[in-house]
Simulated assay, not measured.
Amino acid sequence: MDRFTALADPTRRRIVEMLGRRAMAAGEITAQFAMSAPAISQHLKVLKEAGLVSVEVSGQRRIYRLDPDGLDAFDAWVRQVRGFWNAGLDRLERELAKPDDD
């Protein structure tokens, strides 16, 4: 699953926001939602497959954290799109600044 599809779901976006503050065990993440542990586990699996989170097994616990590589790839795409729009807006501004030939 790609990163955009993974982040299309509000539950997964909320998980990413939570993990942006600190690494968390799967149980801690589940406790923040009114849904079953298996449902949260599925969301975490999607985020992991999309490269947005990583997991570390520590005894019986699974500790999730944001994956910087996945976030860097996402950020690079946003910068590319922002550059496209900035260049386009600059061209528009130049065109609008030209005097009318009427």
Rank of each mutant, 00 (worst) to 15 (best):
A23Y: 13
A23I: 06
A23P: 15
A23D: 14
A23R: 15
A25T: 12
A25L: 07
A26M: 13
A26T: 10
G27N: 08
G27E: 10
G27V: 02
E28G: 14
E28L: 08
E28H: 10
E28C: 11
I29N: 05
I29R: 04
I29W: 09
I29Q: 04
I29M: 06
T30M: 07
T30P: 04
A31N: 09
A31F: 10
Q32W: 03
Q32K: 08
Q32S: 11
Q32V: 03
A34G: 04
A34W: 01
M35F: 01
M35S: 03
S36P: 08
S36A: 14
S36N: 06
S36T: 15
A37V: 12
A37Y: 14
A37T: 12
A37R: 14
P38Q: 06
P38A: 07
A39N: 03
A39C: 02
I40A: 03
I40E: 02
I40R: 03
I40T: 08
I40P: 01
I40M: 09
Q42N: 05
Q42C: 00
H43T: 01
H43W: 01
H43G: 02
H43C: 07
L44A: 06
K45W: 01
V46K: 02
L47D: 05
L47C: 07
K48V: 01
K48Q: 15
K48L: 12
K48I: 02
E49W: 00
E49L: 06
A50K: 04
A50H: 08
G51D: 07
G51A: 10
L52Y: 07
L52Q: 07
V53N: 05
V53D: 06
S54D: 14
S54E: 15
V55F: 05
V55A: 15
V57S: 06
V57D: 02
S58D: 06
S58G: 00
S58H: 05
S58Y: 01
S58L: 07
G59F: 00
G59P: 00
G59A: 00
R61H: 11
R61E: 14
R61K: 15
R61I: 05
R62K: 14
R62N: 12
R62L: 08
R62E: 12
I63G: 00
I63S: 01
I63W: 00
Y64F: 15
R65S: 15
R65H: 08
R65E: 14
R65M: 10
R65N: 07
L66D: 10
L66T: 13
D67F: 09
D67T: 04
D67N: 15
D67H: 12
P68E: 14
P68T: 10
P68L: 12
P68V: 10
P68Q: 12
D69Q: 13
D69R: 13
G70T: 12
G70W: 11
G70Y: 11
G70F: 11
L71V: 13
L71E: 07
D72T: 11
D72H: 13
A73Q: 15
A73G: 11
A73D: 12
A73H: 10
F74K: 04
F74D: 01
D75C: 02
A76T: 10
A76Y: 06
